[in-house]
Every structure is written in structure tokens, then in C-alpha cells.
């Protein structure tokens, strides 16, 4: 693991991996920038976990190169926990096996501080003396994250960290992940698109072992936007006014939805026409309640990419 580009925390170059009868990864290239949360998206069986295991060194790729900037902490989809150990004992054990490269004195000197810090960071201080098996699933997931963090790695990989948790625990884990961004680079896999949109700076979409798309969420949305979609909500507007608006503002297509006390206009054009639309609706005294650009959702992009991938792969 060497020769990593500047500003990059994880770099995969042409990683391929096959199992008997299955090509799990097909020349995967991926770059994760330092200090970012990078979302790794894909449907079940797309190759997410395989990629993450290759990065963490748990499985060996058939070909390609993995470069990491510094140490790595990894939380697999099922947190590896010894249920009969107390949280503190478990973290001490993980710290011990992760600090074997340090001198014994140095490791011992930093141990308690490292464990106390990670307990505070993950909100586990109060339950530190309880057996892991007696904790709720949300807390067990926190212990899993604490395990990945205890040796202060530069890079953290989290494989679907919120799967199977209740809504309260999901929110807590998401908050924790956002806080971790301050000190670590995070590669975070999920199939929950709104979660990725909420947490990540950049994303990569993988399907059938291939990276289909990678980049900043905003850039990707812009790329897929193509058509300007504006939504205008008015108190009163008649058919004639709509037709005049369409003509005046060069609207290519439109839809009108009648609500209880308002009309919702969805207007599609090749250029940004929001100013013209607002001027018209104000002049015509249509009772403009709301005017907003409707951006393309990540979910829509994901669906399009999946369809494209299926077509390409026959």
C-alpha cells in the first residue's frame, strides 16, 4: 500500500475480484478525498461489501492496487463483538491487538486515554462496564464504531451502519458519523439514498461489480438535471393565464395539480425562467404562494443508473 495521490485517503486502482462463477468486482477504481464522508451506494449484491473487505485487507483482490493514507478502522455490516465482554474490556482488547506495533510502554501509557476518549466520542461512557450482549442493538452498533475508532485511524470504513436499527438509534448513529468527519475520513456504504444524501459529501454508485458514477452529490445532480423544473404554487389561476405564462416564459411542458385552495404548476424549460414566472404571476395577481426549483433526487439518479447498468449488461 503506497504511492497514494495527495489529498486522497483511499485509492483503488483496477481492483478485480472473482469467486467461482461470479465476477464480484470488475476493475474498480475509486478515490476518497481526505476529510470527507464518501457514500458508497449500490443494491444488495452489487459488490459493496467485497470492495470494503478488499480495502480492509480481509480478502485479497485478484488484481489491482489498494492505497491507503494511514491507518484504517473498519465496521463490517455485522459488528464483530464479544457478547460476554464488558464494553471497556472489549475496547481494551482491541486497543491491545491494534497497538502491537508500538512499544509496550508507549501503548500502555496511551491506553486509558484512548479508551476514555472513544467512550466519550461514541457516548458509551455510562454503559462501559456493562456486558455487550446486554446492550440494545443501537448501543452495540456504537460499540462497533468505537472498536473501529479506538486506535485513532485516519480512515474509517462503515458498512451499512444503520441497518436494522430503530429510528431513534438511526438518528443517533447518523449524528455520530457526522461528528466523526471532523477528525476522520469516512467511507460509508448504504442502500438508503436519503441517508447518503444527508451525510455524504461525495458518492460512488456501484452495480454488478462496476463503479457507475462517482463525484460530489451536487455535481452529479447538476449533471442529471438537464431540464429546469420549476414549481409554482398560486392561490388563483385560470386556464387562459396558464397558457399565456407558457407562451411568455418559453415553457416546453407543464402539469397543473389542483389542491384544496391552490394550484400547483410544474413547469419544464430548457433555461432558468423563475424570474419571468414570478413577474408574470405577481403582475397577474394570481396569489403567488411559493416558487421553487425542483432538483432531481438522488433516488431518481440511482434508478436511472441501475436501469442503464441492466441494459448494458444485457
Amino acid at each position: 500500500m503506497s504511492d497514494i495521490s495527495t489529498g486522497i485517503a483511499i485509492e483503488l486502482k483496477n481492483i478485480s475480484k472473482s469467486y467461482p462463477g461470479v465476477q464480484a468486482l470488475k476493475a474498480v477504481n475509486l478515490k476518497v478525498k481526505k476529510g470527507t464522508i464518501h457514500g458508497f451506494l449500490g443494491p444488495n449484491g452489487a459488490g459493496k461489501s467485497t470492495t470494503l473487505k478488499v480495502i480492509s485487507g480481509l480478502i485479497t483482490a485478484d488484481s489491482g492496487e489498494v492505497n491507503l493514507d494511514g491507518s484504517l478502522g473498519f465496521l463490517p455490516d455485522t459488528p464483530p463483538l464479544y457478547q460476554h465482554m464488558s464494553v471497556r474490556n472489549f475496547l481494551e482488547f482491541v486497543y491491545d491487538i491494534e497497538s502491537l506495533d508500538q512499544s509496550k510502554t508507549e501503548a500502555f501509557k496511551n491506553k486509558q486515554k484512548a479508551i476514555d476518549d472513544v467512550l466519550i466520542k461514541t457516548g458509551l461512557t455510562e454503559v462501559s462496564d456493562r456486558f455487550i450482549g446486554h446492550l440494545s442493538k443501537g448501543y452495540q452498533q456504537r460499540v462497533g464504531i468505537a472498536e473501529a475508532l479506538v486506535h485513532s485511524p485516519n480512515v474509517i470504513i462503515l458498512d451499512e451502519p444503520t441497518v436494522g436499527l430503530d429510528p431513534v438509534a438511526i438518528n443517533e448513529i447518523r449524528k455520530l458519523i457526522s461528528e466523526l468527519k471532523k477528525e476522520h475520513t469516512i467511507l460509508f456504504s448504504s442502500h438508503l439514498l436519503h441517508e447518503v444524501e444527508l451525510l455524504c459529501d461525495e458518492i460512488s454508485i456501484i452495480s454488478q461489480g462496476e463503479i457507475l458514477l462517482t463525484g460530489k452529490i451536487a455535481d452529479i445532480k447538476q449533471k442529471f438535471q438537464g431540464v429546469f423544473h420549476t414549481v409554482a404554487v398560486t392561490r388563483t389561476i385560470n386556464e387562459a393565464q396558464i397558457l399565456e405564462l407558457i407562451k411568455m416564459a418559453n415553457i416546453d411542458d407543464y402539469k397543473v395539480f389542483q389542491r384544496d385552495h391552490s394550484s400547483e404548476l410544474h413547469l419544464y424549460s430548457s433555461t432558468d425562467t423563475r424570474e419571468k414566472i414570478s413577474d408574470f404571476l405577481v403582475t397577474q395577481k394570481c396569489g403567488l404562494l411559493e416558487l421553487r426549483p425542483e432538483s432531481v433526487q438522488l433516488e431518481e439518479i440511482f434508478k436511472r443508473m441501475m436501469n442503464q447498468s441492466e441494459v448494458n449488461n444485457g
Binding site: 480492509s56 485487507g57 480481509l58 473498519f74 463490517p76 455485522t78 459488528p79 464483530p80 463483538l81 464479544y82 457478547q83 482491541v94 491487538i97 491494534e98 497497538s99 502491537l100 506495533d101 472498536e147
Partner: peptide
Amino acid sequence: KNGTLDLLFRSKL
């Protein structure tokens, strides 16, 4: 079964 073997194998042991 519990996935803890991976914890040992990706450690410095």
C-alpha cells in the same frame, strides 16, 4: 459465525 475472527485477522496480530 460472530464475525470476530475478522477482527483478529485485520488487527496487528
